[in-house]
Structures are given as C-alpha cells and as structure tokens.
C-alpha cells in the first residue's frame, strides 16, 4: 500500500480532531504516515495510532516553531522525498494552506485546498469542494506530481483503525532548514484565552450573534451555555470589536456545519452564509421580516433578540432542571 503523508496538528501532544479526520481519510487511500512537528510526540502517539498511523515521523528541530510556515514546508519536502507518498494531506487552516502552497511549488505538484471529502479514484484521490459560498459542489483531482490536499474540518467522521492499540513506530528525522526559510520571525505570541465552551468548528450546536446584538453578547453566551453550545459572531460584530475574530463565522472566518445553528441579529449576507449554510438545522431570530437569513432558516422568529433569547434561555435551563 502506498504511503499517505499526514501533517498532524497537535498542541503540546494533544492531537486535534482534524488530525483524526485526516488519518481516517488517509486510510482510504493507503497507509498513513503522520508527521509530527514540535515537542510532545510521545503523548501524541496513542491518538495517532488509534486513528491508523502506522508510522510517525517526529521533527523536533526548534527552528520549526520559531519561524513562520517556510521551515515547515522545507521539512515536509525533505520528508516527502524520503517517504515518496502517493498523497499529502494537511489541515485547511491558514497555516496548513500556506505550507501546502509552498510545498506545491517545491515538489512541482498540484494542490487542492479546502476539500470537504476525499475518496480514492482511478487516477488518484478525488476531492469534493464547496465553492461560491456553497452554491456549487465541485469534484477535482491532481494531475501532476504528488497530490497535495488541504482538508476542511469535519470532512470525515474520525474512525478508530482496526489495528488500533498498536503503537506506531516512531522515526526521528533530522531536517535541515535553510537561512532563507528563517526570514519571517515570530517575535511574540499571546495565547488565546480558554472559554470553557466547545471548539467552534467541532460543536454540535453554535449560537451566533451579529450587529443586532447592539454589542451585548451576554444573551448570546447565556443561551449558548444553556445548550452547551459554542458561540459565533458575524463579521459586523467582530469588526465592531464586540467579539474576537477567532469566533467569526463566514467566508473570512470559520466554516461550521453543526446539528443546530442559531443566528441572532444576523441579516444573512452571502459571506456569512458561506460559513454556515450546510448546518443541519438553522434557526434565525431577527426583528426584520425581510432579513435574507429567513430564506434558509428551518425555524425563524421575527422579533427582538433581547426579549426572546433570555426567555428561551430561562425555559431551557428550567427544563434541564
């Protein structure tokens, strides 16, 4: 079986859900080989093994974390030259896409970004993408070199491998980083504060607020907490400084596809829809009957969110007792 290279995403050894998804997809295409950058490989091993990594290539060169993107692309190029994978899978994060971009030029290979599904095909992996704000579904494949594919969160349901339990074999790999790759330095880093809420892209329920909140996200957060939901925001709310960018839903924010998406005080502009319209169920609360968000809502309430949300939150909290 051909090797499928997966760039693992982990924070100090805690493997992100997207990596489990990538490994699940990689098993459809061949034998997953995970590349793990940074400290904490030991603690990442059980999770990587569980989702089918037969082998883990550990890159612990400190320069890989001190500089932006370029060294990681150089490292992956060196790994790819050794492993000769049939495809390379990377998360569709901003960093992942940039690594993939540089790698495509280095390896003279075709690149497909933001796949929402990847399946084996006769001429190599076939990807599915959602384009033009979700209006079209596009199938594509790479026709040159080693297919490099960046995959969106939730493109697959993580499934444990049959061989789960077996610890993957670890190989320390020494990469050499050129001076040229060390030209964009990370000089400071401020960690994002933990909210205690589920991760936006992983949550089963998302409650989002827009300009209609008037800047008060209190009712949005209270309702979200009554449901155990994540909180999202429209760009208008983020631009106004009411909520951090990390929670923006839409074209220039996150794409979410939860079981339930609640949009409160959000008009439903095409760029916002791009990030939420594949949600299973959509609920909208808006005081304007004409708001476009109602065109895609399964259930809509025309009214003032400042009245409705607190009442719904109380009712939900009472029911849950």
């Amino acid at each position: 079986m051909p090797n499928i290279l997966v760039l693992a995403d982990h924070v100090g050894g805690t493997v992100r859900k997207t990596t489990a998804e990538l490994l699940t997809i990689a098993r459809r295409l061949g034998e997953p080989v995970a590349v793990c950058i940074g400290d904490g490989v030991e603690s990442a091993l059980p999770a990587l093994g569980r989702y089918g990594a037969a082998k883990v290539i550990a890159l612990t060169n400190p320069e890989l974390s001190q500089y932006l993107v370029a060294p990681k692309a150089e490292a992956l190029q060196q790994v790819a030259q050794k492993v000769e994978p049939a495809a390379i899978l990377i998360s569709s994060s901003p960093e992942g896409k940039e690594i993939a971009a540089r790698l495509a030029v280095k390896l003279e290979s075709g690149l497909i970004t933001d796949a929402v599904d990847v399946q084996p095909g006769d001429g190599g992996p076939v990807t599915t993408q959602s384009v033009f704000a979700g209006r079209y579904v596009v199938q594509a494949r790479v026709t040159k070199g080693t297919p490099i594919i960046t995959v969106k969160p939730n493109a697959a349901t993580p499934e444990a491998a049959q061989t789960a339990g077996a610890q993957p074999e670890v190989e320390e790999f020494d990469v050499s980083i050129s001076d040229a790759a060390k030209t964009a330095r990370i000089t400071a880093s401020r960690p994002r504060e933990a909210t205690g809420r589920p991760e936006l892209t992983e949550a089963a329920i998302v409650v989002s607020g827009g300009r209609g909140t008037g800047g008060d996200f209190g009712p949005i957060e209270a309702f979200a907490d009554s449901l155990g939901a994540a909180v999202g925001a429209s760009r208008a709310a983020v631009d106004s400084g009411w909520y951090p960018h990390a929670y923006q839903v839409g074209q220039t924010g996150k794409t979410v596809a939860p079981q339930l998406y609640v949009a409160a005080g959000i008009s439903g502009a095409i760029q916002h829809r791009a990030g939420m319209q594949t949600s299973k169920t959509i609920v909208a609360i808006n005081k304007d009957t004409e708001a476009p968000i109602f065109e895609l809502a399964d259930f809509g309430v025309v009214g003032d969110l400042h009245k409705i949300l607190p009442a719904v939150t109380d009712a939900v909290t009472n029911r849950k007792g």
Binding site: I282, T289, F299, G300, V301, V302, G303
Partner: peptide
C-alpha cells in the same frame, strides 16, 4: 435551502 416555519413574536 428552503425556508421553514417563520413565526412572529
């Protein structure tokens, strides 16, 4: 997507 039930408050 098709619109669902819209109620007013």
């Amino acid at each position: 997507r098709t619109a669902g039930t819209i109620v007013t408050d």
